[in-house]
Design a protein around this nucleic acid. Structure first.
Length: 430
RNA sequence: GCCAGCGUAGCUCAAUCGGCAGAGCGGCGCAUUCGUAAUGCGCAGGUUGUGGGUUCAAGUCCCACCGCUGGCUCCA
């Protein structure tokens, strides 16, 4: 009989202290605690373990993340599609998921036909690509989807939003010629950098090469690997090589982002895929009027928007920058007689596209300030006689910084700029 | 899935050896109309995760299942 004993050891006392501090800080930021507390999401472990419900406030954050991503994808020449969640199981026989991934899939049956709930978006995108013949002039095709996928993850691996059974990938497949691989990879890496930049993460890349158990010619692999390498080199991005860690269908680059506590998370991934084009016979018509096999690049940038959201909650400790904050301004009228002025101010903010709420609960001023501060609302307006008379607002940031007698138009102008530029700091904090 | 621990009110937790399920916060009601981080009083809230077993008696002991936490393995 063997007994397993766990331990953690440190070379220096200071390392231990740092580690304990990190654990303490991580606990305070735990998205599983903050999420329900800030009304962002909930998980009903009895009804749908591993499948989060997003509450109205959390849905605002997710939609902001998606809008931001859409904007940049459109810029980068992607087209957006939507594919079915439930598709005939024969599609998954053809893709090979039945053989390699069955244990992780959900199935449903209707009138003697078996359907699978999609665990990945690739086969759906391939069906769209193949629905008409494609000329070499049309390549590359960059097909993008916020694809909701379901994977039966083994019990014991679930973890809040960071490891779930139902999630949404910001997934895209680039169909291109072998000659276009390098340029497309460079495009993806640049897009990753643009999408990550407002969040203030640092990140690093890892290139995974041909594994023992691989599919296809070694020469093709080496060519693909060198395309990935020269893409990384030409961008000047630092990367490690994980020898033999690639998927069996192609080499890949993974991106690890580092959060505010120095913890690393794998989010973005870029994978070359030689297998799917074979299995689905995916071709384009070349200048020679003959069919040629396409190359597929599979890539996701947030990875899973649920996971990315969870990481952001911890990264910001729930205090989202204004562009992501579910409520951007809370107006606190000092007493009932100031509600009218509060409504007038709220209307103006609302018309300017600012997410605003009025907190006119019959509670003391101190209570309402404290409550909204703990909800991490970026800005509070305290409105009493003084403000109503001069048609001004008193601004208090969630860090406690007060600015009295602010002109409303001036506030709107500043905050709109802050939102538009997706700044991480509050305009009235200094 | 594996190893270990845990599951009591919406949340955080209490309940001695197996002997009447309790508190704070939150919620609701009433009073308070207030100038920058918690006003006071009152009320409601429970099939103790689910199912079975032992016992005069189970939140507490035993078994199974579900779920959660930490780790392993796997992954976005």
């Amino acid at each position: 009989m063997l007994q397993r004993i766990y331990g953690t050891a440190f070379a220096r006392k200071k390392d231990l202290d740092d580690y304990l501090n990190m654990l303490e800080e991580a606990k305070k930021r735990d998205h599983r605690k903050l999420g329900p507390k800030l009304d962002l999401f909930m998980i009903d472990t009895d009804i749908a373990p591993g499948m989060p419900f997003f509450l109205p406030k959390g849905s605002i954050v997710l939609n902001e993340l998606m809008n931001f991503s859409r904007e940049l994808h459109k810029d980068a020449g992607y087209v957006e599609v939507i594919t079915p969640l439930v598709m005939n199981v024969k599609l998954w026989h053809q893709s090979g998921h039945w053989d390699h991934y069955k244990e992780n899939m959900y199935f449903t049956e209707k009138e003697d036909t078996m359907y699978a709930i999609k665990p990945m978006n690739c086969p759906g995108h391939i069906l769209i690509f193949k629905s008409k013949s494609v000329s070499y002039r049309d390549l590359p095709v960059r097909m993008f989807e916020f694809g909701k996928v379901h994977r039966y993850e083994r019990s014991g691996v679930l973890h809040g939003l960071l490891r779930v059974r139902s999630f949404t990938q910001d997934d895209a497949h680039i169909f291109c010629t072998p000659d276009q691989i390098e340029e497309e990879i460079i495009g993806v890496i640049k897009l990753i950098d643009r999408i990550y930049s407002p969040f203030g993460f640092t990140y690093r890349a890892e290139l995974s090469t041909m594994p023992e158990d691989h599919m296809g010619e070694e020469a093709t692999w080496r060519r693909a690997e060198s395309a990935l390498k020269s893409a990384l080199d030409s961008i000047g991005l630092e990367y490690r090589i994980a020898e033999g860690e690639g998927a069996f269908y192609g080499p890949k680059i993974d991106f690890m982002i580092k959060d505010s506590l120095g913890r690393e998370w794998q989010c973005a991934t870029v994978q070359l895929d030689f297998l799917m084009p074979e299995r689905f016979d995916v071709n384009y018509i070349g200048p020679d009027n003959k069919e040629h096999r396409v190359v597929m690049i599979h890539r996701a940038i947030y990875g899973s928007i649920e996971r990315f959201f969870g990481i952001l909650i911890e990264h910001y400790a729930g205090a989202f920058p204004t562009w992501l904050a579910p409520v951007q301004v809370v107006i606190i009228p000092i007493s009932d007689k100031h509600i009218e002025y509060a409504k007038k101010v709220a209307k103006k903010l609302d018309e300017d596209g600012i997410r605003v709420e009025i907190d006119s609960r019959r509670e003391t001023l101190g209570y309402r300030i404290r409550d909204n501060q703990m909800k991490k609302v970026p800005y509070m307006f305290i409105l009493g006689d003084r403000e109503a008379e001069n048609e001004k607002v008193s601004v208090r940031t969630r860090h406690g910084r007060e600015t009295k007698d602010v002109d409303l138009d001036e506030f709107v102008q500043k905050i709109r700029e802050e939102i538009k530029e997706r700044r991480r700091t509050l305009s009235f904090d200094e």
